[in-house]
Simulated assay, not measured.
Amino acid sequence: MGDRKILLIGSAAAIGLMAGGALFLTQQGGAGTGCSASTVAGGMDAFGTEFTLTRQDGQRVTSAEVFDRPSLLYFGYTFCPDVCPLDSARNAEAAALLDEDGMEVQTVFVTVDPRRDTPEVLADYTSLFSDDMIGLTGSDEEIAAVNKGWRNYFKANDAEDQEYYLVDHMTNTYLVMPGTETVEFFSRDTPPEVMAETVACHIGATS
């Protein structure tokens, strides 16, 4: 953890380009359920894919097994200097707020760095934010496929350093309902209270 702590206070310039999220996602007036604060070309139903990945406890799990309840899905990596920890903490806080209102929502962290993010590393990382956070990793091909399903761009800057490299990636969080149905996304500047309110609205609309 020592090297990671050093990086946490370092520059995040290499991933700052992606901090604003996807270019094709825009925060504006919603439609449909009346809960949405965002729109996307092609509709939110264009996001998502079935998968089988490895959970932080080493178990292989399918997308149906993971998304058995409303979930806040985020793509990041454990060596991330500051963006991923902040976003993961925000997502965990939103889930905790919803839990206080009697709504069970889980957080899911899919790595974009499967080379370093083994199940054991993910277990240590997710435990920093929530006992209920699910961490998922897999082969390079599996991780590429699931990122493609949610249109998540990522690129490892490892040409010169195979150990302490950073990874460019997008930073949106997606609300995935049971059945792998993606209904909403949140940019990284969305406060946990606003996120919780929007998620609660979607849950109420599908109840």
Score class of each variant (00 low, 15 high):
Glu160Gly: 11
Ala95Lys: 04
Asp168Ala: 09
Met103Cys: 02
Val61Glu: 09
Val61Ala: 05
Thr137Ala: 04
Arg90Thr: 15
Ser71Cys: 00
Ala94Arg: 02
Ala156Tyr: 12
Lys155Gln: 15
Asn91Trp: 02
Ala156Ser: 13
Asp158Asn: 15
Asp132Lys: 12
Asn152Phe: 04
Arg69Ile: 03
Thr62Phe: 13
Asp82Arg: 04
Ala144Glu: 15
Lys155Leu: 14
Leu166Asn: 14
Gly138Ser: 06
Asn157Gln: 11
Ala96Glu: 01
Gln56Arg: 04
Glu120Gly: 11
Glu120Met: 10
Thr137Asp: 02
Leu128Val: 05
Asn157Leu: 14
Glu104Thr: 09
Arg116Phe: 10
Asn91Gly: 07
Val83Leu: 14
Cys80Glu: 08
Ala95Trp: 00
Val146Thr: 13
Ala46Met: 15
Thr126Ser: 07
Leu166Gln: 13
Asp113Gln: 02
Asp168Val: 09
Val110Asp: 07
Ile134Gln: 06
Thr54Ile: 15
Thr111Trp: 10
Leu86Val: 15
Asp82Trp: 05
Ser127Ala: 15
Ser71Gly: 00
Gly149Arg: 04
Val61Asp: 00
Leu166Gly: 13
Arg60Phe: 06
Gln162Glu: 12
Gly102Lys: 04
Pro114Asp: 02
Leu122Phe: 07
Gly58Trp: 08
Ser130Gln: 05
Glu142Val: 07
His169Leu: 03
Tyr125Ser: 07
Ser127Asp: 07
Leu97Val: 08
Phe109Thr: 06
Glu160Cys: 03
Arg115Phe: 07
Thr52Trp: 01
Met103Phe: 02
Ser63Val: 13
Arg69Ser: 03
Pro119Leu: 14
Ala145Ile: 06
Ala89Asp: 01
Asn91His: 05
Asp168Gly: 07
Glu142Trp: 00
Asp57Gln: 07
Asp117Gly: 11
Thr107Lys: 08
Arg60Val: 13
Val121Arg: 09
Leu136Gln: 02
Asp57His: 11
Ile143Tyr: 04
Arg151His: 15
Phe129Gly: 08
Gln56Tyr: 02
Ala64Thr: 13
Val83Arg: 03
Tyr164Trp: 14
Tyr77Leu: 00
Arg60His: 12
Ser63Thr: 15
Glu100Thr: 14
Ser130Met: 01
Thr62Leu: 11
Val146His: 02
Gln162Asp: 15
Asp68Thr: 14
Leu166Met: 13
Asn152Glu: 05
Thr62Cys: 12
Tyr74Arg: 11
Leu86Asp: 12
Ala159Met: 11
Arg151Gln: 14
Leu53Cys: 03
Ala144Trp: 10
Gln56Gly: 03
Ala89Phe: 03
Ala159Leu: 14
Ala92Phe: 09
Asp158Cys: 00
Val105Met: 05
